[in-house]
Design a protein around this nucleic acid. Structure first.
Length: 289
DNA sequence: CGTTGAACCTGTTTGC
DNA sequence: TGCAAACAGGTTCAAC
């Protein structure tokens, strides 16, 4: 569910709902997805939420120092596949799979819900936070064409794998990788380093357009994504490739196909997005087009 | 180095 | 209808 546009949507909602509030208590359900639940329990209550930032698919709740002592720190949150973070009135019954509840000083709560628990939550001091985020690649919305093209050439990997690699770009996931490749008319199994300059530049442009459009519609709700206020996104209605196997391509009418690339389902138009011609770019054992 | 497959865990959809 | 397999927005790690 949560890729850059969805996480951005949630971060924006949280900014309006919880920034400025002091966290007065925490309650946990299952904690196996947390780095150190005891550290959260001991360090988070008493701190004020100074801001909510998004870093790729991570969210960071910036926390004030505790009354007088301690230094600024943050709560790092990754939503994994099914994580949700939203504010709710305390008296509202909790949804199933709610594993963390942060009571706020205005009587409301910040709740983390995650059926599969592929997410992550950690209390980290500033330095540790910076260390944790430093390996991440460029922000896809900020990266320049030059930098983007350069990053595609650093490794000999398929373009789909490069787009999904958080060390290359931070925040792109399966949906937006496929949507961007469709828009740029690039086959997902092409080697990134072999794209022409024009193709790479076109992909850069397509990626930014897609991500901006998705943020404007508050993300994609495939099955259960909702923002910080519980509202679903609308971008799924704009999907042209992702999840559209067998349906006609919006450009040429050819049926969208689904193959496995980089271990992930990849949807593409076999006509608009040409199969890589050279042997080195063709996967062995792949089902024919 | 890059790719693949499995693992983490639960819920939903698909297929026989 | 019933049950089992397949699949899901993500990340990581061992093995080739």
């Amino acid at each position: 569910m949560p890729e850059l546009p969805e996480v951005e949507t949630i971060a924006r909602g949280l900014r309006a709902a919880v920034v400025g509030r002091r966290i007065v208590g925490v309650t946990f359900g299952k904690t196996d997805f947390m780095d150190d639940p005891a550290a959260i329990e001991e360090n988070v209550p008493g701190r004020r939420i100074k801001g909510v930032e998004r870093y790729g698919k991570f969210m960071v709740l910036r926390l004030s120092e505790t009354n007088g002592h301690g230094s600024a720190a943050g709560l790092l949150v990754h939503l994994g596949m099914t994580g949700r973070l939203r504010s709710a009135a305390s008296e509202r019954p909790q949804e199933k799979h709610t594993h963390a509840r942060f009571r706020l000083d205005d009587g409301r709560e910040l709740r983390y819900t995650d059926p599969r628990r592929f997410g992550r939550m950690a209390f980290l001091p500033e330095a540790a936070l910076a260390k944790e985020l430093s390996p991440l690649g460029a922000d896809p919305l900020e990266v320049t064409v030059e930098d983007f093209c350069g990053r595609l050439r650093l490794r000999r990997a398929r373009i789909k794998a490069l787009l999904l690699d958080q060390h290359v770009l931070r925040g792109v996931g399966n949906i937006y990788a496929d949507e961007s490749l469709w828009r740029a008319k690039i086959h997902p199994a092409r080697l990134g380093a072999r794209l022409s300059r024009a193709q790479a530049a076109g992909l850069h442009r397509a990626l930014q357009k897609i991500l901006r459009g998705a943020i404007a519609l508050r993300g994609s709700s495939i099955s259960d994504f909702v923002d910080a206020d519980g509202r679903p996104g609308d971008y799924q209605r704009r999907h042209r490739a992702y999840g559209r196997e067998g349906k006609p391509c919006a450009r040429c009418g050819t049926r969208i196909r689904k193959i496995l690339v980089a271990g992930r389902s990849s949807y593409f138009c076999p006509r608009c997005q040409r199969t890589p011609r050279s042997r080195s770019e063709t996967r062995r054992g792949k089902r024919g087009v």
